[in-house]
Design a protein around this nucleic acid. Structure first.
Lengths: 193, 193
DNA sequence: GTAAAAAATTAAGATACCTTAAGAAATCAG
DNA sequence: CTGATTTCTTAAGGTATCTTAATTTTTTAC
């Protein structure tokens, strides 16, 4: 009944008393997720804020034309949800699928709101991770605007080596916004001439 | 000595007592900014979190090769800074320039931190705007991955009509990640054929 | 362990978008 | 108001990336 990883994650940003830790932990639910299972599908009610204890997930958008765009990967020690739909209590736009057998701990939205009320330090923690998520996405926008596919691929490899170990090239291609065929060409050194 | 717009902005998300409002306002500095002046340049120490009272700003990255990428526009009632560098107290990567004569109110970082300590509701406000900023950037990433330049342009026009009224096409092109020449072609109906 | 499915590669032809350059239109500085 | 600067447009040729399709390699399911 102890979830040490999620506590360590939170304590990277704020320090908690024993009472606070116990209360916090009591709010989480834990769950095993088999490979290829979805913890969220487009159209679902997006109720949970999820922490990856073990395993790996991918969040992606699936267009009407059937094209996938990967919004994020999450491996052990990352948080993942469809934040827009979670916050605004709207049907999910994203699919979140386990890339491998995984275990998560999760907070239903009403308990997250409860924690904000009960433990101001938890709200601080959440503010900090939202700040970080914001600046990370902003940097990604900048890279998408200013770099070639080859440069973005090299950035991805050096920034997220642990993720590279869990995902296929096809999935990386949908994260970079290119086709798997073109990623293959880049890797073969034919990105440029 | 009253800055009603910024208070109204904050009170969209949290309600404040008279005392809190007074304390809050006492922490802001106000500043006039002439057209074309910079409130931040790459390499500067990024000390301020800025609220646009009147006017318009553009935050952009300038690459070594001299290419500009617009990260965001901010008109009246928006907040703007180089968030990554503001949070991490690193030299700015972005330039933030007044597009027209503007007035801002701003919080130095140490006062923002003080407000988080003194007024928990202000930290909640900040959490909420960071959540919103994050989901906005995430949606922009998704659009950059999945839409054509023409689709992104049309989205921009319908999403930000007030901004369109303040900025040049060249500036919009750097926001979309395309050349002004190609934006011109799109507008002439030659995006496709 | 094997058949089936999925991923990765290769290559040829197509297209979205870029580069360069020049002229027209709009804006700015004094 | 006027000259100078910047923005916008147009067009021709070029390049990054896509599409389609076939082949090989790897992974999955039983």
């Amino acid at each position: 009944m102890a979830y040490p990883k999620v506590l360590a994650n939170i304590e990277k940003h704020v320090s908690l008393t024993e009472n606070e830790k116990n209360f916090l932990l009591s709010q989480f639910e834990s769950k095993e997720v088999a490979k290829k299972k979805y913890i969220l599908q487009a159209g679902d009610n997006c109720r949970y804020f999820n922490f990856v204890d073990k395993g790996a997930f991918r969040a992606y958008y699936l267009s009407k034309e059937g094209k996938e765009s990967t919004i994020m990967f999450a491996i052990s020690d990352w948080w993942i949800t469809d934040m827009h739909c979670f916050i605004n209590e709207q049907p999910a736009m994203l699919h979140i699928q386990a890339i491998e057998h995984s275990s998560i701990v999760r907070l239903p939205k009403e308990r997250l709101d409860l924690l904000f009320e009960e433990i101001p330090k938890f709200e601080r923690f959440f503010r900090v991770i939202m700040q970080n998520a914001y600046t990370r996405e902003q940097l990604r926008v900048l890279e998408n605007l200013s770099l070639t596919a080859e440069e973005r691929y090299n950035n991805f490899l050096s920034k997220y080596p642990q993720i590279v170990a869990h995902v296929t090239q096809k999935q990386i291609a949908t994260y970079l916004g290119i086709t798997p065929e073109f990623l293959s060409a880049i890797r073969a050194g034919k990105g440029k001439s």
